[in-house]
Design a protein around this nucleic acid. Sequence first.
DNA 1: TTGACATCATTGCAACTGCAACGTTTTATC
DNA 2: GATAAAACGTTGCAGTTGCAATGATGTCAA
Lengths: 155, 155
Amino acid sequence: MRDDDQIPLPDFDLDGFTPYRLAVAAKRTSEELARMYRARFGITIPEWRVLVHLAHSGEVSVRDIEARVALEKYEVSRTAKRLEESGLIAKRGNDRDRRLVSLSLTPKGRAMMAELLPLAKAHQVELERRLGETFAQLEAGLERLLSENGASDGD
Amino acid sequence: MRDDDQIPLPDFDLDGFTPYRLAVAAKRTSEELARMYRARFGITIPEWRVLVHLAHSGEVSVRDIEARVALEKYEVSRTAKRLEESGLIAKRGNDRDRRLVSLSLTPKGRAMMAELLPLAKAHQVELERRLGETFAQLEAGLERLLSENGASDGD
DNA sequence: TTGACATCATTGCAACTGCAACGTTTTATC
DNA sequence: GATAAAACGTTGCAGTTGCAATGATGTCAA
């Protein structure tokens, strides 16, 4: 065998691989935001998602949140536990169906969201401004990806 | 105080929040791929990234990889450790600069990549087909996001 | 009513992650 | 050269994650 007797590999450009590009873009975008959440409010992204849903929907169960904020059931459960410990949400049993746990914002959580949501909105506006006309293109692509199997399975 | 005397919250639609949309789209896309990697080759996404870079670049250091595949230094280090343990890559010291560790594919790793890379390419083609004309739009958006601060800081 | 099955939420465990600190080696400054 | 500073890679630790299993409750059919 000669020394260069190696299996030849096809060229592959990771930078042109869409799943990779998406992952990197998402990570950057999320981390930018996560820094703000953490620095100003001391919350993580899963916490932010749950809080947003509660702000929007009032009192809901873990199950209700799961599907709506793209978190697994156990993530919601643990996130809710942390949020309760930091006093931002309240958990209580549901009398109709005692398997359910009702989650809702506490006044403290509500006050925080009253401050946070406008910032998030402003961030979105700023993002759209920064992307300019490519924003609509990005959205078209995301829409296509997200609608592909949005309801097909629980994952 | 009346019972409904609550701080009013602005409406906020998580589903329309671009960072969230990106995160969900990236997660779905990545997981689809991760399933294939894991099922057929038993590797994770960080492992896949390191392997791709080695397939492309031959022999490189941890530092070289770090920037190119969007992983932190310690992630590359631990990923390399695992890949070495599973016999897919080899690690050895660099004589010129003994701080460096040279990573390279083993024949076994090379053989795996020879099988994996065509599948990844096919996946990309399939993705482009599925997205149709929105693919170009998505790419335009991603390009904008990724070029914004790609070299500005190491993060 | 009872028993089998489904649903909801939680948790034990092992693996993984992020951060900061570390040891080693090289580079820069005097 | 000697000392300080920087670069490279690794690792200890505490916290987090994902999976599968669990317990508790509800639903349905006989």
